[in-house]
Simulated assay, not measured.
Amino acid sequence: MTLQRPQNPIQAPGTPLAHWQSSTTLQAVPAISHDQLVPRGGRLVVVAPHPDDEVLGCGGVLAGMRGREQDLLLISVSDGEASHPDSRHWTSERLRQQRPRESADALRRLGLDLTRLSWLRLGLADGAVANHERWLAERLVQLLRASDRVLTTWRLDGHCDHEAVGRACARACETVGARLIEVPIWAWHWARPSDPRLPWQRAHKLFLDRAVLALKQQAVAAHTSQLQADEQTPPVLDREALARLLQPFELVFT
């Protein structure tokens, strides 16, 4: 039997944090250290569909790259200009400028020196990355090395851009021999605790100590466009969504 997600998984009511915390399947996921995830001497390539995905999905991993910024390549696929489609305040033109600034502020709050890392913005259309998926995979093949660890959004995360970027990264990693690491973001919203649709057999937890979790919280707070209500529209990231994404660990599929 093929297990399906809801048709519009992000718009459906979200799974409460308490349900995840009581999941025996999640509790049984083994731990992984930062050095196991990103061995010393290797490069971490983070491919983010939108500005903020790199912090929401792997802010703790990024915080662990402090002092190793020369081993970090951040690729921003889109500028996140479509997050507020009906807003007069957050127009696409304003978001195209604002959201990358928020990402830069967030990375600094994680303790990273932006002058020492490499950051590439591709400028693909937010909400339509799938239309350029083949191009993205080919571009990644040009950028990746066989020794890279490539961290991106899960291929079945429930957002069209997250899934397209995940597929493109998987294809590129297979071509060059790099190792793929996927993180769920919207799956925390639509999936059930112990959900068989998640690849638990590939799951590991990177535990975040209090100091790192505090840095991640500060970094998330930099994304003001996503955290504030706008006219009659609630924030993109509400309190419940943030609670699920700011647990004291990060879930990775290796």
Rank of each mutant, 00 (worst) to 15 (best):
R68Y: 06
R66E: 11
A63I: 09
S87E: 14
D105L: 14
G59T: 11
S78G: 02
T91F: 02
D113P: 07
S92A: 15
S83G: 11
G59Q: 08
G57T: 02
L72C: 12
G64F: 01
Q70T: 14
V61L: 10
Q97C: 03
Q97S: 13
S87M: 05
V61F: 07
E69R: 08
E54F: 02
G59L: 14
H84P: 09
A63E: 01
L110T: 01
L110A: 11
P100V: 09
E81F: 00
L74A: 08
V47R: 10
S92N: 08
E81A: 07
D79S: 05
L73G: 11
D113A: 13
P51F: 09
G67A: 06
R99T: 12
L56F: 01
L112S: 04
I75H: 09
V55W: 03
R68V: 05
R96W: 04
R68I: 05
R68P: 00
G64H: 15
L56A: 12
H84Y: 06
Q70Y: 06
R94G: 07
R88N: 15
I75Y: 12
E81T: 01
Q97E: 11
L72I: 14
H84G: 13
D71V: 00
W90F: 15
E54A: 07
R66C: 13
G111R: 04
G80D: 00
V45W: 12
E102M: 12
G59V: 10
V55R: 00
A106R: 01
D113K: 10
E69T: 01
V46Q: 12
G111L: 05
E93S: 13
D86R: 14
T91W: 08
G67E: 07
S83W: 05
V77L: 01
G111D: 09
W90R: 14
L72N: 11
G64V: 03
H84L: 13
P49H: 04
S92Q: 15
L56G: 09
M65R: 10
A82T: 10
L95S: 10
L107Y: 01
P51S: 02
E102K: 12
R101N: 05
L62F: 08
V61S: 12
R109L: 14
T91C: 05
L110M: 09
G111K: 00
R94F: 03
V46Y: 15
R101G: 06
E81P: 03
S76H: 15
P100L: 12
S83K: 07
A48N: 01
R43N: 13
T91G: 04
A104W: 08
D52L: 04
A63G: 08
D52W: 12
L74E: 09
R109T: 09
T91H: 06
V77S: 00
S87L: 14
A106T: 07
E54S: 06
H50A: 08
L112D: 01
L107E: 00
